[in-house]
Computed example of a mutant assay.
Amino acid sequence: MSRLFRDVHGGARAPQGSVVCIGAFDGLHLGHQALVRHAVSRARDLGLPAVALTFQPLPREYFGRAAPPARLQSTRGRIEGLCALGADEVGLLRFGERLSGMSAEEFVDGVLHRLLRAREVWVGPGFRFGHARGGDLDLLCAMGTRLGFTAGSIAPVAVAGERVSSTRVRAALAAGDFSTAARLLGRPYAMGGRVVRGRQLGRTLGYPTANLRLPRGAAPLSGIFATRVHGLGPMPLPAVSSLGTRPTVGGVEPLLETHIFDFDADIYTRRIEVEFVARLRDELKFDGLDALVAQMDRDAGQARDILDLPPARKTA
C-alpha cells in the first residue's frame, strides 16, 4: 500500500535507499506515465521503494497566482494515479515560501539525499528545479556523483509528431477536442468527485443533476457536454453535463452538473467520474427559465444522438 508524505524534514524515509521520480504530474499524461513506470521498474530491479515527488500547489500555480494554468486533475486524482502506476510513496510537497526559496543544491542534499536516500533520480525532458529554476539534470548528475546516486532523463513521448505535455492537453480540452486529449492522456478525459447537494433547481425543471465541485484552480474547459458517468454500476451511464457558473440563475461558484438520462436514484455522497465525450456549446445566459429549459431540451436531444440513445419518452 502506498504511503503519502508532505514534509521535507525529519528522518530518512527510505534508510536502505530509493528510486525517485520528480514532476508536476498534472493530468498524468503519457509522458508522466512513462517517467513513473520507468522509475518503478528500476526500483523493482533494485529491490528498493519507488518514490514519486510532486507539489501542492503546483509551482506554476504558486508563481502565477494572478492567472494560474487550468488544473487538469484534482489532487486526490493525481495521488491515486501515481499510486496506481506503482509508486510506493508519494511526496506531495508543500510548495510555499520555504520550498520555493530552497536552492537546487539544498533540495538535492536535503530532500533527495538525506530524506529519501536516493540511489537513482529520474526526471522528464528539460526538467528544472530549485530557486529561480537553478537546477537541471547536469546538476543532479554532478551532485549524485558526490552523494552516491545516479540521475537520468527519459526520452520525450510524442503523439502525432509532437511531445506530449500538459499544455497540449489543456489546449485540446479548451477546443473540445476530446479524441486528441484522450490520445495524449492514454485514457478519456474525466472529472471525478463526491456528489454534493445543490439548490435542486434542476429537478424542478425536469433535469435533476448530480453535482461535483471542481478541483482547486481554473477548470480546463467550460460549456455544455455529452458525457458518460462511471462509478454507479458495471457500465457507464449516458448523460448531459454543464460545467460553469449557471449565469441564468445567478450562480457564482463553478460547478459540474450532470443529468444522467433515464436514471432516478439517490446518489448523494457517492463518488463518480464524469467522462467528457463531446462539446455541445458555450454556457449562455438566458432571459428566463422558459428559454433555459427549451435550450436544455435541445442539449439533451443532441447529447442523446451523440451517445446513440433513443429520444426521450414523452410524458402526458
Rank of each mutant, 00 (worst) to 15 (best):
G144R: 04
Q33G: 09
A300I: 00
M143G: 09
L221G: 08
F178A: 08
V249S: 10
L58I: 03
H113W: 14
L289Q: 10
A50P: 04
L184H: 02
A160E: 15
G17I: 00
L92H: 05
R270T: 08
A182L: 05
G192Y: 06
A312M: 10
M296V: 03
Y207L: 04
F276V: 06
G86T: 00
A171G: 11
A34I: 05
T248V: 07
R313N: 13
C21L: 01
C141P: 13
L243H: 00
Q33A: 11
G47D: 02
A174P: 04
T258P: 13
A181C: 10
F225H: 04
F276M: 10
H230F: 11
A278P: 02
G288C: 11
A66M: 07
E283A: 11
R271G: 08
D7K: 14
L48W: 02
L46F: 01
H113R: 14
P59C: 04
P208I: 04
L201Q: 10
V196Y: 11
R65K: 13
V19A: 02
V196G: 12
V8W: 14
Q16E: 04
R170A: 01
V159T: 09
R270C: 13
G198T: 02
S18R: 00
L99K: 08
E275M: 08
L237A: 01
D109H: 14
T180M: 13
G192A: 15
P220D: 07
L85K: 05
P311H: 03
T227E: 09
R133W: 09
S153H: 07
A52H: 02
G110Q: 15
V90K: 06
A24T: 15
G86L: 05
A175C: 11
R183H: 12
E283Y: 03
K314H: 15
N211Y: 04
R37H: 08
R216A: 15
D282G: 14
M1V: 15
C83T: 09
D297C: 09
R133H: 13
C141T: 14
A84Q: 12
I79F: 09
A175P: 06
A265H: 11
R37I: 01
L221F: 08
A70C: 07
A132W: 13
H32W: 00
L48N: 00
G251D: 05
K285W: 08
T204L: 11
H259K: 01
L82I: 01
R3W: 13
S241L: 04
V111W: 02
L173W: 03
S166N: 07
F95R: 02
L35F: 06
E273V: 00
T180K: 14
L116P: 01
M143K: 15
A50R: 01
V157W: 07
V164C: 06
V8R: 10
S153T: 15
H29A: 01
Q302Y: 08
M143N: 09
R71S: 11
